[in-house]
Amino acid sequence: MRLTVMGREIMKKILISLAVLALTATGVQAGPEEDRMAFVKYYKAKFPSVPDKEYANGVYAIDPVGRENWEAIEEFPPYEPFIDAGKEMWEKPFANGKGYKDCFPDGPAIQHHYPNWDKKQKMVMTLPLALNQCREANGEKPLKYKKGPINNILSYIAFQSRGQVVNVKVPMDDPGAVAAYEEGKKFYFTRRGQLNFSCASCHLQNTGLKVRTEILSPSVGHVTNWPVYRSKWGTVGTLHRRFSGCNNNIRAKALKAQGRQYRNLEYFLSYLSNGQEFNGPGARK
């Protein structure tokens, strides 16, 4: 009799610990804020001397040598002409006489509204997508999402929005929003491509270490500075162009820019940067 009671007790304990394990394994118990805090804590342990606000400067928060070059580049910002071109785009009316101003009455400093969960369309809305929806509603052709003129208007909006703070919200009472966030998080931690890396392999597990001469950047701060003038590109490009490039580097086929997967990844990544200042357009190697 005693044995069966003990057996039952052990059984119960095993079941409870299994349930706890299952919960931790799937990350169900961790909401967006717990995730963000865990990332912040992780980077803080790795880079104790880096102040919280510095993460908006990306890799230059943790790379003193690269930072010197970057600061020199920022003295004559290579993205400036794109801001000017974007200002023209913003002010020029569409063929129907309306313009971006009509779609975004509080513009052009609207960076801090994005990305957001669009309750009506039941999807993550990003700034490039919103700009194209505005164009299409007014009979204009949508812009391409990786290269070209979309970067001009994004540069102008980013510049006008400098100093705003990332403030992404995941409405926990909306299962669609929670699912989108969770999908973005899963994407971040999933290994892909022939080289078998996840975003986390490089930008969490090995942040601060070097691939050849390149220091791997932390994910807090990944989204604050777009669009970015990359010396490698010789021009300004979008965040989703960078996602594609990253996927290509690990020998995975890039997914569609502004497709569901990348938008959800942007949702998750942006949440991680909550509290950081927007400082786009940026300049990077």
Binding site: T26, G27, F189, T190, R192, N196, L204
Partner: peptide
């Protein structure tokens, strides 16, 4: 590669 990761497994180095 994808099917084997169907369940999200959080890495042990990220402490909550």
């Amino acid at each position: 590669q994808q099917v084997s990761q169907r369940e999200l497994k959080m890495p042990s180095y990220l402490k909550y």
